[in-house]
C-alpha cells in the first residue's frame, strides 16, 4: 500500500485552476520529486497535502485512509506525522535556534521540555549546527537557517517530509550543504516529496520523478528514464531547456 496516495487532486484560487486532476503516489521511505516549470502547481500539491491550501476535489490518503481536510482534528493528526520545509525557511525570528526546535514538540506533542531540548541538540548536530543552538535566525546564513528549518520539521518526528524548493533562495555555494542534509535524510527511511529545480540532485536522490505542467501530471517514472528517455514531448522540452545550463 502506498504511504501517501494522491488521486485526482483539484485546487484553485478564485476563478483560476491551479491543480487540474493530479495523481501520483509514494511508497513508504520513497523519495518522490516533483519537477516542472514555475506555476505548474508543484508547490500547491505540497500546500494542499499539509492542509494550508484547500482542495476543491480529489483525495489524499495516508496508509490507505483518506484525510478529511474539513475536520480540524484530522488536519491536526495529519500534521503530527507530516512536516514541511519552505523555500524561505520561515524560522521564528523572535526565538533562538533551540527554541525554534523545542516549541512545537513541547506545545503540540506534549514532550517534556528537557527531552525535547535533548532531541533538538541531537538534530542540530545531525545538520551540522550543534554550536548554533543559542543563535537567533538572523545571525545565521541562509543555508544554516534552512538546515535549522529542516531540523525543526524533524523535531516533530514526521514520517512524511515535504520539501518545497528548499534550495531556491540560497546562494549557490550554500546549496550543497542543504542538499547534503537531505541526502542523509533520505537514507533514514522517511518518505519525502520534494519540489526542486536541482535536476542533478533529483536524479541522484529520487526514486520516482513526477513531471507537472499547467496543473497536471505530464509523466511519471524513475529518474533515469525521465531524464534520458522521456516519452512525452513536454517533458523532453522541459529537460532540454533546464539541462542546457
Amino acid at each position: 500500500m502506498a504511504h501517501i496516495d494522491i488521486v485526482d487532486l483539484v485546487a484553485g484560487y478564485g476563478g483560476s485552476t491551479i491543480l487540474n486532476g493530479v495523481s501520483f503516489s509514494a511508497g513508504r521511505g520513497e523519495v518522490v520529486a516533483l519537477i516542472g516549470p514555475s506555476g505548474s502547481g508543484k508547490s500547491t500539491v505540497l500546500r494542499v497535502a499539509i492542509g494550508l491550501t484547500p482542495a476543491s476535489g480529489g483525495t489524499i490518503s495516508i496508509d490507505g485512509t483518506p484525510v478529511d481536510y474539513a475536520r480540524p482534528a484530522a488536519v491536526a493528526a495529519l500534521r503530527r506525522r507530516m512536516g514541511i520545509v519552505f523555500q524561505q525557511y520561515n524560522l521564528f525570528q523572535n526565538m533562538t535556534v533551540i527554541d525554534n526546535l523545542v516549541l512545537a514538540p513541547v506545545r503540540t506533542l506534549g514532550v517534556p521540555p528537557a527531552q525535547a531540548a535533548a532531541r533538538a541538540h541531537d538534530l542540530l548536530a545531525r545538520v551540522g549546527l550543534a554550536d548554533k543552538a543559542g543563535s537567533y535566525p538572523d545571525q545565521l546564513s541562509g543555508g544554516q537557517q534552512q538546515r535549522v528549518a529542516i531540523a525543526r520539521a524533524l523535531a516533530m518526528q514526521p514520517d512524511i517530509l515535504l520539501l518545497d524548493e528548499v534550495t531556491a533562495a540560497l546562494d549557490p555555494e550554500r546549496v550543497g550543504e542543504v542538499l547534503e542534509t537531505i541526502r542523509a535524510l533520505a537514507d533514514t527511511g522517511i518518505t519525502m516529496l520534494i519540489v526542486s529545480h536541482e535536476m542533478g540532485f533529483v536524479r541522484e536522490i529520487a526514486s520516482q520523478v513526477v513531471m507537472m505542467d499547467a496543473g497536471r501530471v505530464v509523466e511519471t517514472g524513475p529518474p533515469a528514464a525521465m531524464f534520458d528517455a522521456p516519452t512525452q514531448p513536454r517533458t523532453a522540452a522541459f529537460m532540454k531547456a533546464i539541462l542546457r545550463h
Binding site: F86, N90, Q93, N94, L103, A104, T108
Partner: peptide, 27 residues
C-alpha cells in the same frame, strides 16, 4: 509578522493561542 512564519507555526500544530502569544505578539 510575515505570514509564512504563521503558516509554519500552523503546520507545526501550534494552537491559535500559542501562535499568537509565542510567535506573533513577540514580533
Amino acid at each position: 509578522v510575515p505570514r509564512p512564519q504563521v503558516e509554519s507555526a500552523q503546520v507545526l500544530g501550534l494552537s491559535w493561542w500559542d501562535r499568537l502569544v509565542r510567535v506573533v505578539l513577540p514580533q
